[in-house]
Amino acid sequence: MESTDLIISICLGIGLAVAAGFRVFLPILILSAAAYFEVIPLSESWQWMGSLTAIITLGIATVVEIFGYYIPWFDNLLDAIAIPLAAVAGTAVMVATVSDLNPVITWALAIIAGGGTAAAIKGNASALRLTSSATTGGMANPIVATVETGTSTVMSIAAIFVPVIAFFLVLLIFFGIYRFYKKLRKKKPPTI
């Protein structure tokens, strides 16, 4: 694999991993559809993801997940299992898009860059949802859910069609998270 192709596939994987941090199944569905329509190649052992069966199955899971975030009790259930699922999804999209590397390097990259990125995003999204529930009594949660779904969609599409731009969006998202926590830390009153 050429170094340019490798960089693009890593950017693609990281972009999809961030999208998986917002919605677990949506980026995998978009990746599956892109593979089905031969927009992007998948690594050899992940060709099944580009099948019609995978698209239908992932489509159903995506619809259940998206609408589940609008049902308060289901929303809480999804948040309880979402971080490990996001880590698995982030790892999977990274492994599926990066090929022609030593398997040890591929899996290390997938677990750290894919799974770690997705888990970090999902953890922050869950904290935002918890804050929204605590401060608005859950009234703002549908807005948060809509923004998360929109962000996941945009990140997934950007990762598929312009992976390098998606990588810069990832950096922008992490910078925004950093700024938010830095600002939050300044507001804490001193303890005596």
Results as ranks from 00 to 15, higher is better:
121 I>T: 11
84 P>V: 03
28 I>S: 04
53 T>S: 13
118 A>C: 04
90 G>I: 00
7 I>D: 03
156 S>M: 06
10 I>K: 01
69 Y>H: 10
73 W>D: 09
189 P>G: 09
114 G>N: 03
116 G>N: 07
161 F>S: 03
81 I>T: 13
51 S>P: 09
11 C>T: 04
128 L>A: 13
116 G>P: 06
113 A>V: 09
28 I>K: 06
146 T>A: 15
100 D>I: 01
148 E>G: 14
13 G>R: 00
133 S>N: 15
44 E>L: 11
150 G>C: 05
147 V>W: 00
1 M>V: 09
66 I>Q: 09
68 G>S: 05
1 M>N: 10
21 G>K: 09
42 L>Q: 02
82 A>R: 06
77 L>M: 13
37 F>T: 12
120 A>T: 15
126 S>D: 14
35 A>K: 02
68 G>E: 04
86 A>P: 04
14 I>Q: 06
10 I>C: 05
52 L>A: 14
142 P>V: 04
4 T>G: 06
180 F>Y: 15
151 T>Y: 05
83 I>W: 11
158 A>R: 01
173 I>Q: 03
141 N>W: 05
5 D>Y: 10
7 I>S: 07
63 V>S: 07
138 G>P: 04
140 A>Y: 12
97 T>S: 14
176 G>R: 09
81 I>S: 12
183 K>N: 09
119 A>L: 08
118 A>R: 10
45 S>T: 13
52 L>M: 10
170 V>S: 10
101 L>H: 09
106 T>R: 15
129 R>I: 02
22 F>V: 06
186 K>Q: 14
117 T>P: 00
88 V>P: 01
135 T>R: 13
168 F>I: 08
58 L>W: 13
181 Y>R: 11
155 M>E: 03
143 I>E: 06
22 F>H: 10
167 F>W: 08
67 F>D: 08
93 V>H: 00
146 T>D: 04
128 L>T: 13
14 I>Y: 06
149 T>D: 15
165 I>V: 15
18 V>H: 05
22 F>T: 10
48 W>T: 04
99 S>V: 00
44 E>A: 14
134 A>P: 01
50 G>F: 00
